[in-house]
Design a binder for these strands. Structure first.
Length: 375
DNA sequence: GAGCAGGAACGAT
DNA sequence: ATCGTTCCTGCTC
């Protein structure tokens, strides 16, 4: 990610160095009272990754700006209600929340529909070129973050990054995931039983006609996913999306018969905060079991039938299908001999380490994360 | 029989 | 050293 030096100056505390790593100081601030190994902390890149709060995006598409606002839409940056809608986008939120650039670039607040308040450059006092040039990194970061998260989700869902290449099944997966995100009825899936090529050829009107309830939203989401699939960015270099093809090809060739796991997530969650490209393509298996379990738990639409939260708040979850969870874990770690006996042994190791604990009332296949690993 | 608990040895990093 | 895997025995449900 390229950041101009002036941009970095403007946000000395908030922008690490363009890396998408969780800021350790935030964790210490939040969990200062709990002494634990920071290196073991949830890699929030993925532990919340599917919780994108995509609701934010649709208004951008759906709420047309007024004429005056449209004129300078290039300079409008959404802020304000972001924190209400986005449990994640940590870096992006930090950037957008930071209003220091408002003064610096002499921006004036403008309403941005549902989003709350944005900013527009005061053209009389700041040259458009300058504003364009210096605000570009913010927009670029936003797009990078968006792409990263979408690509990450593609990896998790096991679908292509290019919507036009989706199979009927991939379309269905994508739909189910979106509907789950917005807690919308899954029934809408049936209106879009088609390959990605057909889906992407539909107009917004087509979407709405098929489902007035969710059509508009799905269309807006699809627009974003399509935008994210456009090549020419550096997102792929961020590291945690790289494994996709390597891992998939490796595992599927090793076990072609096991197509039940075709939807298995790839290594998106390995999301090493170090986004160095040199690390990519390792087929990396250094993900921790507890992280992996949280990945599964984070995608109830896909894995809800094999593992689910019993008490999300308390970090209590139940493994519904021990065989499948073990198989998924084995695939992820490239351990074909993995079984639930071994997996559960690894979980029990976490008792000593304070990552998990025995539940108050011991139940079969029920485990509990310790704070803050359940977050 | 399936799952839980935990010791021990081991390999990979 | 750490982490996870593998194998094991003994136990509970």
């Amino acid at each position: 990610m390229v950041l101009s030096s002036t941009f970095l100056e403007a946000m000395p505390q908030r922008v690490p160095t363009g890396e998408l790593s969780p800021a350790p100081e935030d964790y210490t601030a939040v969990f200062a009272a709990d002494a634990f190994d920071l290196s073991l902390l949830p890699n929030t890149q993925f532990s919340k990754e599917v919780d994108f709060g995509f609701g934010l995006w649709s208004p951008i598409k759906q709420e047309p700006l007024s004429e005056e606002e449209s004129e300078s839409c290039d300079q409008i940056l959404p802020v304000g209600r972001l924190e209400d809608n986005l449990p994640d986008h940590k870096l992006l939120r930090e950037v957008l929340k930071d209003t220091s650039f408002q003064k610096r670039y002499n921006l004036i607040p403008v309403p941005v529909g549902e989003l709350g308040t944005g900013f527009r450059a005061e053209m009389e006092e700041v040259s458009m070129d300058l504003a364009q040039e210096e605000i570009q990194p913010v927009l670029s970061m936003a797009m990078e973050q968006l792409k990263t998260e979408i690509h990450s989700t593609c990896a998790v869902l096991g679908i292509s990054r290019e919507p036009c290449k989706w199979t009927v099944e991939e379309v269905e997966t994508w739909l189910a995931w979106n509907l789950a995100q917005f807690s919308l009825p899954m029934a809408a899936v049936q209106f879009f039983k088609m390959p990605g090529q057909t889906l992407t050829s539909l107009s917004e009107q087509d979407f709405i006609e098929r489902s007035s309830e969710v059509g508009g939203l799905l269309y807006a989401q699809l627009e974003l996913w399509r935008a994210a699939s456009v090549e020419g960015t550096k997102v792929d270099d961020s590291g945690f999306l790289q494994e996709t093809s390597t891992t998939r090809s490796g595992s599927s060739s090793g076990d072609p018969s096991d197509d039940e796991e075709d939807e298995e997530m790839t290594d998106a969650s390995q999301a090493s905060p170090k986004s160095s490209s040199s690390k990519s393509g390792s087929g990396g298996s250094h993900i921790h079991l507890w992280q992996f379990l949280k990945e599964l738990l984070a995608s109830p639409a896909i894995y809800g039938n094999c593992i689910r939260w019993l008490d999300r708040q308390a970090g209590v979850f139940k493994i519904e299908d021990s065989v499948r969870v073990a198989r998924l874990w084995g695939k992820r770690k490239n351990r074909p001999a993995m079984n639930y006996d071994k997996l559960s042994r690894s979980i029990r190791q976490y008792y000593k380490k304070g990552i998990m604990k025995k539940t108050e009332r011991s139940q079969r296949l029920v485990y509990q994360f310790c704070h803050p690993y359940s977050l």
